[in-house]
Amino acid sequence: MTRQLSRTDNLVHQFDTVLRTLVPHAAKPSRPSPARDIVDEPMTDIEREHAIGLMRINHTGEVCAQALYQGQGMTAKLPDTREQMEQAAQEEIDHLAWCDTRLRELDGHTSTLNPVFYAASFGLGALAGAVGDRVSLGFVAATEEQVGRHLNSHLERLPIGDRRSRAVLEQMRIDEAHHERWALEAGGARFPLPVKFGMRLMSKVMTKSVYRF
């Protein structure tokens, strides 16, 4: 029999999630990194800095994903899809940890703007969840679609020698596509183009600022 969590238990759990998301190196993956057996080829300093910028963007994207799922968890009911959402959230933690590890390997750092984007994404997730489960799931699908676009772009822009980052992003692309399909099949609304366009504009703000900071 599953024990019903008290309000205090839930608050502790939520705070723990925030810490594991925002504190560097705190996230622990449930799966080994796809890059574990991959060896990089030589890269110039400029190529390495470019790879760091791209992986920093991907790390912040996973911070936003965690905040989105947490915000939705506070307001959305989702009784028939709770297990799938929890699995998706765990896979996003894997992505977060993999990107963090890769940044350390490249002698890079996570974005100093992560708390700002976490707070904004949490608010959007909570709002979407409060509106209704169909909108909440639709927001997941639209977000994952946008993430997939970023991953495709970054896979094209990564330095040829950065084979370890490429392995991580390729697995992330597979997972994100699965999350998008699941959200739509679970009844998520397909957002109209103007809404998706607005999400892309917000995404551009994130990528431009996080690439260097």
Rank of each mutant, 00 (worst) to 15 (best):
V168T: 01
V39P: 02
E91P: 00
R7I: 10
H179G: 07
G187E: 05
V147K: 03
Q90P: 03
E145S: 13
M55E: 03
A97P: 04
L54W: 00
R190T: 14
G198T: 04
D107V: 13
H25S: 14
G108N: 08
R173I: 08
A120F: 06
R31C: 04
P192G: 05
V63I: 09
K77Q: 11
G161N: 12
S30R: 04
T21H: 02
R104S: 12
F191T: 06
N114H: 04
L103N: 01
E176I: 05
H95Q: 00
V39M: 10
M172C: 08
E145F: 03
A130F: 09
P79D: 11
F197W: 13
M85R: 10
N10G: 09
R82W: 07
S6W: 10
A120M: 05
I38D: 08
M202P: 00
M74G: 04
V23E: 14
T17V: 06
R102C: 02
H178S: 13
L54I: 15
I52A: 11
P192S: 05
K28H: 10
M74D: 07
E47V: 05
L54D: 03
K204I: 11
E176R: 02
H25A: 14
E144V: 05
L137Q: 05
M85N: 08
E185S: 15
N58C: 03
L151Y: 00
A177D: 13
S153R: 15
L155A: 09
M1C: 12
E156H: 14
E170P: 04
K28M: 08
C99L: 04
V205Q: 13
F117T: 06
F213D: 08
G161W: 08
L19E: 13
M206V: 15
T21W: 01
I174M: 09
M206T: 09
M199N: 08
G125Y: 01
R157N: 15
M199K: 06
F213A: 09
R163V: 07
V135S: 03
L137P: 02
V63P: 02
P34L: 10
S121T: 00
P159K: 11
Q70Y: 05
T101Q: 10
K208R: 14
T101W: 03
L96G: 00
Y118N: 01
H178L: 11
M172Q: 06
I174A: 12
M85L: 15
A65K: 01
A65N: 02
Y211L: 15
P29W: 06
A130C: 07
A97H: 00
D100N: 13
G108S: 12
M1P: 10
H154L: 03
Q70N: 12
Q146C: 06
V131R: 01
H95G: 01
E91A: 04
R104I: 11
T81Q: 11
P192I: 05
G61V: 01
E180V: 10
P34K: 11
S136N: 12
V210Q: 04
A120R: 03
V168Y: 02
A167S: 07
R157T: 14
S30T: 04
E170Q: 14
F122Y: 10
D133T: 02
G129S: 09
M1G: 15
A65V: 02
T17K: 01
D45A: 14
R36N: 09
T110E: 05
G138S: 04
D175C: 07
L158F: 02
A89I: 06
P32I: 08
Q87D: 08
M202G: 14
N114F: 03
I46Q: 15
H25T: 14
